[in-house]
Design a protein around this nucleic acid. Structure first.
Length: 581
RNA sequence: GGCCCCGUAGCUCAGCAGGAUAGAGCGACCGCCUCCUAAGCGGUAGGUCACAGGUUCGAAUCCUGUCGGGGCCGCCA
């Protein structure tokens, strides 16, 4: 049920009778939206302006004809032509309020759509190197990706959540050597970690486990004896740790895709063979990077991927000087794998430090799928952690980064999630430890939660008074909604009606933050209405002498609660039914 | 040098696929609880949407350039 969408269809039909071909592209520029100012009606359209040129008539004429067409519609109260040819609509109150009944009937299904038509989307996110626990910066990608997944599922897509595990590169050797030192340390040797090692104390227990398992077996042994085993052991531990961190954020992966399986299975060679067959791999010499002076740079002939044919700036090497694959070669194989798994769309969520990688991945997918598989790459910008009034530096190698677990334990999963979703993904974010744990009004999540809790409280009170049967919605479904006539009530109902449209836009743009902002506005409308009841007694939700009116008003706020609860669900935040301590 | 992101109120940020008089929160100031939760509400003050061109009936939004902040730039991942 989407009353605005339904009216939009009516309008488009009317436009067709004015002579606009429904397939014409100018129709995509036609909008039906809530004007900024209330004097321009409840909804306004630019249809007449947009189509005037196409119809070879003045906007005013088109507007007049549209007005006559639509004026007889039973939903309409009045239509006004304004400015250069806008049509401003005011609807009968029932247009908005009857939607409340539908909202309650549909419950968590209100706003859900089948826009995605079951298309299969592979969403790759987090993909942090398995060399330590997640930190606050990773949390943003994790939360963004997970909320996006929920949003897409809500709009009819089938989403697969995947973590790409970089368990094959040199950084994993570093990890293996680091735990070897911790292993020696656990046995009782004095060791010195250099900046060639990961110094985080979280590796100590890994060393202790290894000592417990192997005793002194690997002491004074060459790397070739122990490295492979220590690497594997450490990675398993790190992955388990990362899973825990994600679970604490309420994030679950469907798959962890291992880089080493690509190497071991020969998938990289196969992918490169395929590309070579298509003439996209060649031996060549790259120009030196401009600007930044690199004293050790030397021209070298190497195998290159012709990514410039697919929109990249330079061709990319796939083979290192020592004969091993570059990271990008593995990535080509990985994305070839994604393409051949038959997904309809790919989405990658990267951290800002991978910004320089976007074009070559796009080029890779374009080449590997022959332009058939669309890919969207979302970058999440940096998170600055503010603690004790200052920004914290994060350096994994030095082991002094702010661990995610610590943060979530301090502020809670819901607050962490909501806070990070109140920012657009490509804007920088300050995660202010001190503020966010205050549980005060500086915290938008409490504002929304509070609105929901207030409604639950009122409903519970009405049950206590015997005015409705229980918090089950059946007693509300029969309410006489024509009793809702106050502007504040209509405004609230109107906001509820916007929900399907907000969901649709957020989904289309891959921007879950729009849900968070909408919920904030909805909560604001609710609080505003609630407080009006202090002054104007007839607006108070529960009035014992007015049973029918009470039901109607409770229907209104119950619908608000449904939307808040659904919206929070998309963000992965639990609604609260009470907030008393 | 090249590429990507950002530049909107004192601060942190929204601004929907170009629409009419640019918004919210925080901070400042003035008000509102005998009452369904004041973790709330109403009001006042605060803007050359970085700058300059261009496209358009119409630009914070699209294009080009300049300036400023951040990120990245073969043999790290």
């Amino acid at each position: 049920m989407n009353v605005i969408g339904a009216f939009n269809d009516t309008m488009m039909a009317a436009l067709a009778t004015c002579g606009v071909d429904r397939k014409d592209l100018t129709l995509s520029a036609v909008s039906l939206e809530r004007p900024k100012s209330a004097v321009h009606g409840e909804l306004a359209t630019n249809a007449a302006i947009v189509c005037a040129k196409y119809l070879n008539r003045t906007p005013r004429e088109v507007a007049e004809q549209l007005k006559i067409q639509l004026e007889t519609d039973e939903r309409i109260k009045s239509i006004e032509i304004a400015g250069p040819g806008f049509l401003n609509f005011v609807f009968k109150p029932g247009f908005w309020t009857e939607n409340l009944r539908a909202t309650i009937s549909l419950g968590q299904g209100y706003g859900r759509s089948q826009k995605g038509e079951g298309r299969r989307v592979l969403l790759e996110f987090v993909s942090a190197n398995p060399t330590g626990p997640l930190h606050v910066g990773h949390a943003r990608g994790a939360i963004f990706g997970d909320a996006l997944a929920r949003l897409l599922e809500f709009t009819g897509y089938q989403v697969f959540r995947e973590y790409y595990l970089n368990d094959g590169g040199a950084q994993v050797d570093t990890l293996g050597r680091s735990v070897y030192l911790r292993y020696l340390e656990a046995i009782g040797y004095k060791v010195e970690l250099t900046n060639e090692h990961y110094g985080g104390t979280y590796l100590k227990e890994v060393g202790e486990s290894l000592a417990g398992r192997f005793g002194e077996k690997f002491v004074n042994q060459p790397e070739s004896v122990w490295l492979a085993e220590f690497k594997r052991f450490a990675i398993d531990r790190m992955v388990a740790c990362i899973r825990q961190d994600l679970a604490q954020l309420n994030v679950q992966m469907d798959t962890f895709f291992s880089e080493t399986t690509l190497i071991d299975s020969g998938a990289i060679e196969q992918t490169l063979d395929e590309l070579r067959r298509r003439g996209l791999i060649y031996e060549g010499v790259l120009p030196p990077p401009k600007g930044a002076i690199q004293e050790d740079w030397e021209p070298r002939e190497q195998a290159l991927f012709r990514s410039t044919l697919h929109g990249d700036d330079v061709d990319r090497p796939v083979l290192k000087a020592d004969g091993s694959w570059t990271y990008f070669a593995a990535d080509l194989a990985y994305h070839y794998n994604k393409v051949t798994r038959g997904f309809d769309e790919l989405i990658n969520v990267f951290g800002a430090d991978h910004g320089g990688y976007v074009k070559r991945i796009r080029a890779a997918v374009s080449a590997l799928s022959e332009g058939k598989t669309p890919i969207d790459i979302k970058l999440t910008q940096l998170v600055r952690v503010i603690k004790d009034g200052g920004a914290q530096k994060m350096s994994k190698r030095a082991g002094e980064f702010v661990q995610l677990r610590e943060a979530v334990e301090a502020v809670g999963t819901d607050v962490t999630r909501f806070t990070m979703l109140m920012r657009k993904n490509d804007a920088q974010l300050d995660f202010d430890f001190d503020k966010v744990r205050e549980q005060s009004k500086d915290n938008p999540v409490f504002y929304v939660q509070y609105a929901h809790a207030r409604i639950c409280s009122a409903l519970a009170y009405a049950v206590e008074l015997g005015m409705i049967v229980d918090s089950d919605d059946n007693s509300l479904k029969m309410a006489d909604l024509s009793l809702l006539i106050h502007p504040a009530q209509i405004a609230l109902a109107r906001r509820v009606s916007e929900w399907p449209r907000i969901v649709d836009q957020a989904s289309r743009h891959h921007e879950p933050h729009r849900i968070a902002f909408y919920l904030n506005e909805l909560a604001s409308d609710l609080h505003s209405y609630w407080t009006l009841g202090n002054r104007e007694k007839q607006l108070r939700l529960i009035q014992e002498e007015d049973a029918e009116g009470t039901k109607a008003r409770l229907t209104l706020v119950r619908a608000v609660a449904v939307v808040i609860s659904t919206g929070l669900g998309i963000l992965g935040v639990k609604p609260m039914t009470e907030m008393r301590d």
